[in-house]
């Protein structure tokens, strides 16, 4: 399996990337870690004429809290996130997801930005971003834009990014006291894309009432999916087992899985119910710590 011919261009700044992409037009693709794009090129599902390598752009690899935001540079690798103390301490949902994503050698190369920008509902990070209400920051020909995650995923491999936009940063509301998140996916074997995955982020007030809740689903719809109807049930409520069961049921109803090698539609709906409940409980447990 060998990719078709293309021209490779290395850029060292976001400006340079945008200028080059604008010049080369639609036949140019950005490559960050390359672990989503290059396999498609090797299978010749993708045959871009130009590859613009943005992995060498300096300054896009960082994890920091700034004001009331957690900011992660788009070129941060999944391995860097896995071993980051701040994420381990305050954002355990990240570790949940990264541990289940591909394998360590792939995570050494694969970036957070790439995982999101690929627009693939089978990737794990989109569900987390939906649950955590992330904002995607991108630079484009028309300047910097901040895209709320709810407006980011448009379709199968399609996002709000223009072809020349470079995803530069992910912003996530900083973890507060009383907040917690959790992610799990059912996979056929370790490193597989999800049969179904669920990310939950919850924020409780001092009385244990749910102030904020985000639920994102992996690979049970064409586009990464937020479970809004389920969130509404919980927001402003003291979360009980009954409510959790109700949300699990909603998740199984609202997701849009298809029967395939990973299982029947009915099976997937059932496991979405189960793991939604489990992740709600796990997120609550973390929030209450």
């Amino acid at each position: 399996m060998i990719p078709a011919n293309f021209n490779y261009h290395k850029v060292t700044s976001v400006k340079e990337a945008i200028a080059l992409s604008t010049e080369l037009g639609e036949e140019a693709k950005y490559m960050s870690g390359g672990h989503s794009l290059l396999p498609m090129m090797k299978l010749r599902f993708a045959t871009p004429e130009h590859i613009i390598d943005i992995s060498k752009i300096e300054g896009l690899s960082y994890i920091k809290e700034d004001g009331d935001m957690l900011k992660i540079g788009a070129m941060t690798t999944q391995t860097e996130m896995e071993h980051n103390d701040l994420l381990k301490e305050n954002y355990p949902i990240m570790g949940d997801a990264i541990w289940l994503t591909a394998d360590p050698s792939v995570r050494n190369v694969g970036t957070l930005g790439g995982n999101i920008a690929h627009g693939d509902a089978a990737n794990d990070q989109p569900a987390l971003m939906l649950a955590m209400r992330a904002t995607v920051v991108a630079e484009g020909a028309d300047g910097t834009k901040s895209i709320p995650i709810d407006e980011f995923f448009h379709g199968f491999y399609m996002t709000a990014l223009e072809p020349s936009d470079v995803l530069t940063e992910i912003q996530i509301p900083k973890a507060k006291k009383g907040s917690g998140g959790a992610y799990v996916k059912i996979e056929r074997k370790v490193g597989d894309y999800a049969t179904a995955g669920v990310a939950v982020h919850v924020e409780l007030d001092d009385n244990g009432v749910c102030q904020q809740i985000g639920i994102g689903l992996t690979n049970v719809s064409a586009v990464p999916m937020r479970l809004e109807r389920g969130e509404e049930v919980l927001r402003g409520q003291t979360i009980t087992d009954e409510l959790i069961a109700q949300v699990g049921k909603i998740a199984s109803e609202d997701c849009e899985p298809e029967s395939d090698l990973r299982g029947s539609e009915a099976y997937k709906r059932s496991v979405v119910d189960t793991i939604t409940k489990r992740m709600l409980n796990k997120a609550l447990e973390r929030a209450r710590q």
Partner: peptide
Amino acid sequence: TSNCGACTIMLDGKSIKSCTYLTV
């Protein structure tokens, strides 16, 4: 397809799958 790891090498101190990495 970067599943088997037979092509794993160390690049700048990290294991990577060299079948899914461009030489350039």
